[in-house]
Amino acid sequence: MSAPECGDEISQRLVAAAYETIAARYVVERHQIGAALLDADGAVHFGLHLDAMVGRAAVCAEAGALSAARLATSAPLVAVAAVRYPKPTETAPARIVPPCGLCRELLLDYAPGLAVVVTGTDGAGRLVSLAGLLPHKYVGTKWGAPAPALAEHTRTAL
């Protein structure tokens, strides 16, 4: 088994790193997704999906990678990829998975300009704007005004 194919160098690097992470740490019903998050300094930070008996208590791989990145650096975050490893009963190969809605919100809180690897119509991974996947992000009053990149995206969407 190998990492899914991608159409550009950054996507391929992140998908390969996410795949290697989950391939090394896969445990049935515990760890099924690995994530890799690239920062502006070129470092890659890793996260592992942590399943739980109570579904809401589970932690997504992207959230783990975000936490790891923020522990390691304050550099801007550039791109993220997540790969789901198949269960032993599945015949399909490992595949790229987009962030869930909760992770989209969380990642955009910390990196409004973040790109994410998704599977294109040709089957290959490609980078897209995460804000484009969540065009109506919740913006509360907790932290004041939205980040400039998000505000700019909001203006262009109108």
Score class of each variant (00 low, 15 high):
1 M>S: 11
5 E>N: 08
6 C>T: 02
6 C>W: 00
7 G>L: 05
7 G>Y: 00
8 D>F: 02
11 S>E: 01
12 Q>E: 10
13 R>V: 01
13 R>P: 03
14 L>G: 01
16 A>E: 12
21 T>P: 00
25 R>G: 06
28 V>M: 08
33 I>N: 04
33 I>D: 01
35 A>G: 04
43 A>R: 13
44 V>M: 12
46 F>D: 04
50 L>Y: 04
51 D>Y: 11
53 M>E: 10
53 M>S: 11
54 V>Y: 07
60 C>A: 14
61 A>T: 09
61 A>G: 07
66 L>V: 10
69 A>W: 08
69 A>M: 12
70 R>C: 10
76 P>Q: 14
76 P>S: 15
80 V>C: 12
82 A>L: 01
82 A>Q: 08
88 P>T: 11
89 T>A: 14
90 E>G: 01
94 A>V: 03
94 A>W: 00
98 P>D: 10
99 P>Q: 06
102 L>R: 15
102 L>S: 13
104 R>P: 11
106 L>R: 15
110 Y>G: 09
113 G>S: 14
121 T>C: 01
122 D>R: 03
126 R>W: 00
129 S>Y: 00
129 S>W: 00
131 A>K: 00
134 L>R: 10
134 L>M: 10
138 Y>T: 11
140 G>K: 05
142 K>M: 13
142 K>R: 12
143 W>Y: 14
143 W>A: 14
143 W>M: 09
149 A>N: 00
150 L>S: 07
151 A>P: 04
